[in-house]
Write a protein that binds this DNA or RNA. Structure first.
Length: 428
RNA sequence: GUGGACGUAGCUCAGCUGGUAGAGCACAGGAUUGUGGCUCCUGCGGUCGUGGGUUCAAUUCCCAUCGUCCACCCCA
């Protein structure tokens, strides 16, 4: 180990070449999935004014209180690296008048930043795929988004994910319930831990979520939010559950599920797994009917979810479902006087003649032996050989590196035809 | 922010109660004068995270610091 070599910032990871193929495959699948449901991509800045997050996420949330990367730019303006995607998306929609068209469906993908202590499945820079739908008040769109995620698991070959779902009701119902809950918890004040006592003042609903055993016992006897929903939210929730049942999606109603961000109303849900240790939430979302108006836009109901890419990739790996890297179709071996130049030109002709061809040209010289070794390690299915003999006779060697078969001697036109077959017969 | 474990070659790791370092993989070359995958041989590669302390002597013991991992908290 060298001495004071500069290292990456804690919790911010490089994605190395052996990992990027899987990421690319997952990203392509997500793009495809979103488009398959009529969602359009929106690309948003990574930096926003601090005020946006303070207002949308909530002043007393952990994210705003202690996890944001906030700084002053040269004008003295307070800016923050986005800790999540919804706030910026809503801001952009308001700013550009996108919400005058009802039924906007949007998706985005990119890095988010939170200053937390890193651990498995939790990083300071992480990536989310997010989806938002605006102007649609009914449970049909909630269901659509949950079905979208269920389809994703299926397409990735993932099993065993658990859907937890709950309703937080209208802001009014939530406020009334909050009072009930605070009264109840005050009655058990002695049994609450320090954190929960503090939240009693700031955000009592989150006490429901506590992992503290003693607090959990207290919470078990608390009044249930689901029993105090307003009629409209109740109907919304019931319909959503019915839609899920009809679609064959299993769910677990979890009355203690409370999402961390303040802006949620009515539907909240999480997809969780027990295969990722403590950070088992792979995807989470819900409805936030009040946020758009709160941020100064036209009153607009909205639903969305976010999915953690690092967690999804980790789960794929744990499940043995990581997408494979796409090896080259062929490796061009070049040895002998004049074959470098001829080879480079040949490779260009082949790439033009065979769209989709993944062809690696040997660079840096080396003996036949060394070059075949590289060809093998590249994972290529075929070696194309251009040596002095081939150069003189205007032919090419074509040798299978994976299965059975002898090396053949072909002319260029025949080679092109063979490469077409290789490219179109799928992965070797 | 709190707690615990761990930092030895590019990677995965060994190194018993202190005597200045090893293996496998990878990489390069050879056995095979134009042909990989198996085998064998050779070679390259480390101021043992960093700084300080104890000691005749520290990779080994102590302290600090940085980093990694796991958990708490919280969340994707």
């Amino acid at each position: 180990m060298a001495k004071q070599r500069i290292q990456a910032v804690r919790g911010m990871n490089d994605l190395l070449p052996e990992q990027t193929p899987a990421w690319q495959a997952v990203e392509a699948l997500l793009r495809d999935l979103a488009q398959g449901y009529g969602y359009a991509e929106i690309r948003l800045p990574i930096v926003e004014k601090t005020e946006l997050f303070r207002r949308s996420i909530g002043e007393v949330t952990d994210i705003v209180e202690k996890e944001m990367y906030t700084f002053e730019d040269r004008n003295g303006e307070r800016l923050t690296l986005r800790p999540e995607g919804t706030a910026g998306c809503v801001r952009a929609c308001i700013q550009h008048g996108l919400l005058h068209t009802p039924g906007r469906r949007l998706w985005y993908l990119g890095p988010m930043f939170r200053h937390e202590r890193p651990q498995k499945g939790r990083y300071r820079q992480f990536h989310q795929f997010g989806v938002e739908a605006f102007g649609l008040p009914g449970p049909d769109i909630d269901a659509e988004q949950i079905l979208m995620t269920a389809r994703l698991w299926q397409r990735l070959g993932l099993e065993g994910l658990r859907l937890e779902i709950n309703s937080l009701g209208s802001p009014e119902a939530r406020r009334d319930y909050r009072r009930l809950l605070v009264d109840y918890l005050r009655g058990h004040y002695q049994r609450l831990d320090e954190d929960s006592r503090r939240r009693l003042e700031t955000n009592p609903l989150r006490i429901l979520d506590s992992k503290h055993p003693e607090v959990q016992e207290v919470v078990a006897g608390a009044p249930r939010l689901l029993d105090h929903l307003d009629a409209e939210s109740r109907a919304h929730f019931e319909t959503l559950l019915a839609l899920l049942r009809e679609a064959g999606v299993d769910y677990h109603v979890n009355p203690r599920l409370v999402r961390g961000l303040d802006y949620y109303t009515r539907t909240v849900f999480e997809w969780t797994t027990d295969r990722l240790g403590a950070q088992g939430t792979v995807c989470a979302g819900g409805r936030y009917d009040g946020l758009v108006a709160y941020l100064g836009g036209p009153p607009t109901p909205a639903v969305g979810f976010a999915l953690g890419l690092e967690r999804l990739l980790a789960l794929l790996e744990a499940s043995g479902r990581l997408p494979e890297t796409e090896a080259p179709h062929a490796y061009l071996v070049l040895a002998g006087e004049g074959t470098d130049r001829a080879g480079l030109a040949l490779a260009e002709r082949l790439r033009s003649a065979v769209p989709g061809l993944r062809l690696v040209v040997n660079a840096g010289g080396g003996s036949f032996k060394a070059q075949f070794k590289r060809a093998d390690r590249s994972g290529a299915a075929w070696a194309i050989v251009l040596g002095e003999g081939e150069l003189a006779s205007g032919t090419l060697g074509f040798k299978p590196l994976r299965g059975e078969g002898e090396q053949e001697t072909l002319d260029e036109a025949t080679l092109v035809a063979r490469l077409h077959q290789v490219v179109h017969s799928g992965p070797a």
